[in-house]
Write a protein that binds this DNA or RNA. Sequence first.
DNA 1: AGTTCTGCTGCAAACGTTTGTAGTCGCATG
DNA 2: CATGCGACTACAAACGTTTGCAGCAGAACT
Lengths: 348, 348
Amino acid sequence: MPATIRDVAKASGVHVSTVSRAFSAPQLVNAETRAHVLAAAEELGYRPNRAARALITGRTHNIGLIVADIANPFFPPLIKAAESHARGRDYHVFVADTNEDAGVEEELVLALAKQVDGVLLCSPRMSNTQIEQLSREVPLVVVNRPVPGLPAVVMDVAQGARLAVEHLVSLGHREIALLGGPRGSWTNREIRRAATLAARTAGAELVVLGPNAPTEESGSAQAEAVLRAGVSAVLAYNDLMAVGLIDALDHRGVKVPDQISVVGIDDTALSRRTRPMLTTVATPTAAAGRAAVDMLLQHGDDRRTTALVTLQTELVIRDSSGPGPHRTAGPGRRQQPPVDGVASESRE
Amino acid sequence: MPATIRDVAKASGVHVSTVSRAFSAPQLVNAETRAHVLAAAEELGYRPNRAARALITGRTHNIGLIVADIANPFFPPLIKAAESHARGRDYHVFVADTNEDAGVEEELVLALAKQVDGVLLCSPRMSNTQIEQLSREVPLVVVNRPVPGLPAVVMDVAQGARLAVEHLVSLGHREIALLGGPRGSWTNREIRRAATLAARTAGAELVVLGPNAPTEESGSAQAEAVLRAGVSAVLAYNDLMAVGLIDALDHRGVKVPDQISVVGIDDTALSRRTRPMLTTVATPTAAAGRAAVDMLLQHGDDRRTTALVTLQTELVIRDSSGPGPHRTAGPGRRQQPPVDGVASESRE
DNA sequence: AGTTCTGCTGCAAACGTTTGTAGTCGCATG
DNA sequence: CATGCGACTACAAACGTTTGCAGCAGAACT
C-alpha cells in the first residue's frame, strides 16, 4: 500500500535507479530531473524502505544500546547523550534493557545483530569470552569494562574509589566498609581493588561486604551488616545503594554523617536528593555515551583505532561524609582531586 | 561474510526453501531433514537476516516506543513492562527519547515507521491531527492521551485529581494551587479540568499555575508563585515537580505539611524518597505498558478492537499532606479511593 | 489397477532498494 | 569528420529471505 520507489519512478517518468540516485547521490542526477522526482515523491508520500536499503548496503543506520537496568538513574543521562549524538550523525539508537541478566543480554545482542550496524554494550554482566564471541556477530563497543581486543570506554572508577577512601581517611576514618556491587561487574572489581590498595596504603582497614544487587533495597538490606562490622564509614558501589543504606541507617536512628559517613559513586540526580546530600564520585556518563557512539561509528571506516578510552572521575564532596572517630589531619571540605591522577591500568 | 540461508542449504544438501521452512514452518518439513538442517545451521553459526525477512513478510517483529524523557522516573517502569511483555511474544522494543520536543517526536515516528510493526507513542506533545497523519505511516497506539479513531491507553488521572482535591478539602484546605504541567499534554488538561470541578463542588478555590516544564527544577522555580498565591495546599502535575517544590519550600523555611500540603501524581520511586514522604496519585504505569503492547499486537490481526483502555488510579496518602487552616471534618489518613469511582469521559 | 490423498521437497518469483555497466546525446576537440 | 568526453540516464543483477505452486513418491482408498 505505501508508495515504493517504483511508483515514484512511474509518476515522474524516469527509471527507478534515477529515483534512487535522486535521494542517495544527488550530484549524479540532473538538478531539473531531481526536482521532478522529489516533487513526485512528496506527492505520493514516499518514504524509502530502510529494510530494503539495509539489505543491499549492509548498513542500517541504527545502533543498539544495551543497558542493565533502565530504571537505574545512572543510565538515562548516558542514553540521552548517545541518542542525541547519534541523531546528529543520522543514526538512530535502539535501547534495550536486560534486567541485569546475562542471558537476556546475550539474547538481545543476537536479536539486534542483524538490524543495527553495531551495539553499545553498557555494564555487561556476561563473561569476556561470551562478549568476544558475540563481537563476531556484530561490531561491539563495550562501556564500563575493558575487553581485550574490543573497543571500549571505561570510567576511571579506580581513581574515584582511591580519592573517596583518601577523603575518608583524611577525615579520620580508620575502619571503612566497601558495599560491593553485582558479581560479573568489572567496575565492582576495580573499585574493590583500588579501595583495598588505597586503604592499605593509608593504614586503614577495609572490610568488603558483598556481592550485592546494585539497588536501593540491597543497600538498605546491608545496614545491619554495616553496623555489625563496626566501621565508621562506608563506600558504596553506587549512589542507589548509598541512598538505600542512608535510609536504613536513618530508620535505626543512626546519624549520617555524625555516626557513620557514607560515600556513593556515580553522582546521579539522586545524590542531591538525599538528606544529607550525598558525597559521591562523579562519573562522566554523558561523555561516555558520546565517546562510545564515536568509537562505534569510526570503527566502521577505520579498523581498530583507539581500543580503550578512559574517562576521568572526580570526587564531589557534599554532606554525607564527616569527621571520623580518630581525628588526625582533616583538610576537610572542598577538596579537589589531583588533575594529574594516575590512570589505572585497565586490564581484564 | 556471515552465513546465509544458501550456505546452510548447500551444507545440508537441501533447497533454500526447505531451510527456510525448517525455521519458520517446522510442521511442513520432515523431522529428520529438519534435524539435519538445524545441525548444519548451528555448525555455520547461521542467524536469519531479519531485514530480508521483513522485506518479504512485511513484519519486522520490532515495536517502537517513544517517550518524552527517559530520565523522568515515570517512564522506566512503563518501558520495562512493555519490553518484557513484548519479549514474551517474540517482539523487541526499541526505545527512543524526544526530549519533550514535538518536532523530534514526529521525526522519530517517521524514522521508525519502516523498521517496526508499530509504535507506542507515550505522552505525545504533538497535535491530534499530526498524530492522525502519522498513523497512516505506521500503526500507532497512543499512551496517556486519547486520540479519536486511534487505539489508546490512558490513566484515569481525572479521578486521581478529584480524589486528591477531595482529600485536601477534607483536611480543611480551602485554597489550593494546581502546579500545571507542559502545554500539549492531555493529562495536564484532564487534571486541570477535574481538579477545578472537584474544588468548585467542594466549595474550595483552585488557582492554576502554569503551564510548566514537568521537571524538578520547574517545580522549585514555582515556589515563589505558590507562596504568593497564599494557598495552603498544592497539587502538582507530577511527582518530579512536587519534589522540586518541597525542596524549594524547605529552603525557604516553609514546613511541609505543617504550613503547606503538597500532593504529587505518578507515585514514582521518588515519592518514597522525599522528607516528608509524598502523598501522591498512583498511576498504573506497568499495566499501561503491557496494555499498549497488547493493543498494538492484536491491532494487526483483528481490526479496531477496543479503541480506548482506561486504567484506574489510586490516591496514596503519605506524609506531605496534613491538616489545613480551616479544620472542618478531617476523616484523615488511610483513606481508600472508592472502588466504583466514575471513570472520566475521555474526550480529546 | 486406477485414483485420490498425504507428506514432503524443489522451483522460481517476489519484496524494495542500490550500484556497476553500458548506452545515449550533445558538444568540443583533434 | 571522426573521435573523445562529460553529463546524464536506463538496464539488470544483486541482497537474503518467504511462499504459492508444482512435482513426486508412497499409501490408502475404490
